[in-house]
Each structure stands twice: as C-alpha cells, then as structure tokens.
Nucleic acid binder design. Structure first.
Lengths: 112, 112
DNA sequence: TGATAATGACCCATTAATAAACCACAAGAC
DNA sequence: GTCTTGTGGTTTATTAATGGGTCATTATCA
C-alpha cells in the first residue's frame, strides 16, 4: 500500500509534530530516563511513548503535552506563569469577539 | 458525573492545552470563519472543532496541529523555516546521544 | 567477549475518539 | 418584530487509539 494517508496534513503541522517528537525523545535521553520510566510517570504505556517519539499524529494531545511537561519542555516558550497570563488575556479578548460568525458582506479575512 | 478525570494531567499541560484551544477559537472568529468552514478545510467534522476549541485532551494531536496551522497559528513561535532548522539541529544532536538509556550507576538526572 | 537490559515492532482485546445526524437556543440580519 | 443561521449539546454507529503482552534486535556495561 503506497498511500495510507488517510488524512492530509500540511507541511507545517507535520513539521511541528516531528519537532515536538524529537524534542521529547531528546529530553528523555538527556535525562537518562528509559521509555518505561517516562511511561510510568506519565501514566501511559511504553508503546504510546514510542508512538509519541515517532510523531504519530493520532496520539491524544493530552498525553503528548503531559509527556512534554514531565520532561520540562516549554510548549509555547512560556513558563506556567506566562501561560496563565496568556490564558487570561486571551479569554478577555475572546469575550469581546462576536459569539457567532456571520458572512457579513462576503469579505473573507483570509489574509495571513 | 461531572468530572470522570480518567487521567491525571499536570497543571502545565492542562494550561498549555487550554491556551492552544483559546488561540484556535480566537483565530477562527477573527478570521470570520464558521466552525463548519474550518472543519471542511481541515478535513474533520464540526464536532471535532468544537471539542478542540473546548480543549479536550483526547483529541488527536495531528488534527489539532492541522487546525492551528490552517488558522496561521505559530505552534512553537517558529515559522516553517525556523522549524525546519530546529528539526535538523535536533536530529543532529539526537544522533550523538546514546541510543539506549542504561542505569549507569544510579545517578538519575532528575534535576530540572 | 559475554551478559543484561532497553528498544523497536508486532499482536490482540478493550476502550475511546470520530463522524454524522439530530435538536434547541441564541445571535445577528432584515 | 421576524427570519435566517451558527453554535452547543445530544445520540448512535463506525473507526481508531490505547494498553498489555510477546519477541527479536541491539546497545551498553562488566
């Protein structure tokens, strides 16, 4: 089978995932933890650690983030404090935005 | 049952996930995209968009990253070029690290 | 070199995520 | 005000991830 590709991913998201997987594997080895140790700490199976370090897109994001957090990886270049601040600021901004999106006019803000 | 809490998450990973969910929702509304539009672009269902924007830890990381990428969210404060560079650098470092971790002595590098 | 243990890869049973359809409600347009 | 439509919340069926186990390989240490 040449095309498993059940789902299409952009190169950006694929790279982001591969990078996170690499960082996790590197951090684990640098901290001299076995895959089993990391699995036990994160409360997951060793097989899942392998999939995460391989960059499997199907892994639950909660498990991946938890593993990364255990290894001390800063997910958004932010520590706990900074992240909480961003959460609050973002929440405030979100409250000011319209609750539902309507095609008002037809001008699609697709420019990014 | 209000909170099954099948798995325990650290506050850091929980906040990181909540922050990513908020950023996604905010970006979608700011770009005036309906949940259905975003779902179609990402190739997922509208229900999954809702769960992602709610910060459900069980969502597949591939789907979340893809949605974020579509909205133009920088996942590691890095653009495509920077990410590719990090991938290469990390890969090179990884090649120099020991392939398997052995309990050499018992000194656990747990300090971080 | 030989011993030991970590890794990688596979299997299967269970569990959970996902998709799709529906509903009620609320937000925005007219 | 009415009407349209996006959203949130369900339920159900299908699909996929996860856990746990085993096995072969290989890296690391004595």
């Amino acid at each position: 089978m040449a095309k498993p590709e059940t789902r299409a991913y952009s190169s950006y998201s694929r790279d982001a995932q591969a990078l996170l997987a690499q960082m996790i594997r590197r951090a684990r080895i640098e901290r001299e933890m076995t895959a089993q140790d990391l699995a036990d700490r994160a409360g997951v199976s060793r097989g899942l650690i392998q999939r995460i370090e391989r960059g499997d897109p199907g892994c639950a994001i909660g498990a991946v983030f938890e593993v990364a957090a255990i290894l001390g990886i800063r997910l958004f270049d932010a520590d706990q404090q900074t992240m909480t601040a961003h959460l609050q600021a973002n929440g405030a901004t979100l409250a000011l935005l319209p609750k539902s999106v309507r095609p008002s006019g037809g001008t699609v803000k697709d420019d990014f």
